[in-house]
Nucleic acid binder design. Structure first.
Lengths: 147, 147
DNA sequence: GTCATTTGCGTGCATATACACTATTCTGAT
DNA sequence: ATCAGAATAGTGTATATGCACGCAAATGAC
């Protein structure tokens, strides 16, 4: 079910564009979050673990749309810093993850900094573009979800 | 010049969303480009170097909206594979980069694979969402450009 | 109960990303 | 001519990303 023909110009590459935008946005959030020592990925990861209670890596992988093995490594600094802890459940293969008290406290401290980053982006782009971008991203993720 | 108040839900984080979409889109392009041995970043990098003729890293950094030091490392495999070569110009600080014949040939071979990836994304998302997303990304990059 | 299969994870390897810092070269003021 | 400062690029360190592969535990067919 092919659509219209494509203008062959790698400068217009959707992948290039979205990666560039991701880099730029990441920088903005990183600057705001830097006082906490958390990277934006760690902030998201910690937030999901805190919200989902004890959760296995495989489940997190689905929630975050991130490769399982990537999460294994991204968890390392958070485990080392005592922000997240693991426990084994009945199924000894499964490694349940939960936020520690320190982890929840740090996330709470980071929340306003995250909000400031979000606001900076919103202020720079304006409310319409902000909502357009988020809508397009959300719909794209639905359409592009792996089988 | 603050806009409307913000709903405090990291699940709705713009950065999280755009990074997730970038991951997914990157996977699609990578699969298509894999026969060439080029990653999508390398494809873009090679394309820009080929198009811009001899170009310095600092200039590439602006064109690609990527940190200069990131480019230094991303160039390594391309230099090692003889796809790009460096030369010193009059200014001995500046390292001019140019695509080799092999580099241009490989890029030419990669182009249809890139186009297929672009088409797959377009087919999955439909023409309207594709154009909406690209428009939003383009405008976002303008608004978020660093000072 | 046994064993092939499935499931859940971690590792090895390679690339991508960027901040802080360093080294070299050029430029302009004196 | 000299030298302070700007311009250009690389390195050290740390995280992010995912594919191929291997390992152990659970499951199901018999």
């Amino acid at each position: 079910m092919s659509t219209s023909p494509l203008r062959l110009s790698p400068t217009e590459c959707t992948c290039f564009r979205i990666r560039g935008a991701a880099r730029r946005v990441t920088q903005i959030y990183s600057q705001h979050l830097s006082p906490t020592g958390l990277k934006i990925s760690q902030f998201s990861l910690l937030g999901f673990v805190a919200a989902e209670g004890p959760v296995a890596i495989g489940r997190l992988s689905e929630l975050l749309a991130t490769d399982r093995t990537t999460l294994t490594r991204n968890l390392k600094p958070l485990l080392a810093d005592g922000l997240i802890e693991r426990a084994v459940s009945g199924d000894k293969r499964r490694h349940e993850l939960a936020a520690t008290a320190a982890g929840r406290a740090l996330f709470k401290r980071a929340l306003p900094l995250w909000a400031a980053a979000e606001q900076e982006v919103r202020d720079a782009m304006g409310p319409k573009l902000t909502s357009d971008l988020r809508g397009a991203l959300e719909r794209s993720m639905e359409k592009l979800a792996p089988l």
